[in-house]
């Protein structure tokens, strides 16, 4: 089957991507070198492939690639501002939110989205907000702590450190 061209914006840059018409957005991102977005289950259960798609967090394994035409996306590669980590990344690093690291990119996307919507989350908000992202290593405790620390230790403007949303 001939490939098709998709025009879209990823991490602030306009892109023309060629894609197998049957492929998933996850495949196309990864084939174009954005391998920080992971595949854990391929059926929308684990959240490892979470990205921002037109401002909302989606499982990129459930999005047909052709739907990305004209879309604006942010992947984990676009979360830090150059060398400067996003506050959520910083917190995951410092408070043990990442162990094996495979769920981490998706988990960070979900956490960034949560804090954007609820800058002062309760523990229940955090649990609910991350329920679509599975982690087999941490038991979630240090992930909750990481997210909690971001909002407690504010002063870092999330909007400012995440330029591409």
């Amino acid at each position: 089957m001939p490939k098709q061209i998709i025009t879209c914006t990823i991490n602030g840059q306009s892109q023309r991507l060629d894609a197998h018409p049957m492929s998933r957005l996850l495949d196309v991102l990864r084939e174009h070198g954005l391998t920080g977005t992971k595949e854990g289950c391929g059926e929308g259960e684990c959240g490892a492939c979470s990205i921002f798609f037109n401002g909302r967090v989606v499982n990129s394994c459930l999005v047909p690639a052709l739907q990305a035409e004209g879309a604006t996306m942010t992947t984990i590669e676009g979360i830090a501002n150059g060398e400067q980590l996003h506050a959520v990344q910083e917190a995951f690093l410092k408070y043990g939110g990442a162990q094996c690291g495979i769920c981490t990119p998706g988990m960070i996307m979900a956490a960034v989205a949560l804090l954007k919507e609820k800058p002062n989350p309760t523990e229940a908000d955090i649990r609910e907000g991350l329920a679509g992202n599975l982690c087999r290593c941490t038991g979630y405790m240090k992930i909750f702590e990481s997210v909690m620390r971001v909002f407690k230790g504010k002063g870092t403007d999330l909007e400012e450190t995440c330029p591409h949303k």
């Binding site: 954005l34 391998t35 920080g36 590669e77 980590l85 990442a98 690291g101």
Partner: peptide
């Protein structure tokens, strides 16, 4: 001491390379 994970930065930025990458 709770020294920060050595390969943590690569993991939180999506730069760590797993086999499928």
């Amino acid at each position: 001491q709770s020294v920060v994970r050595r390969e943590g930065r690569e993991k939180v930025t999506g730069q760590a390379k797993y086999v499928d990458d």
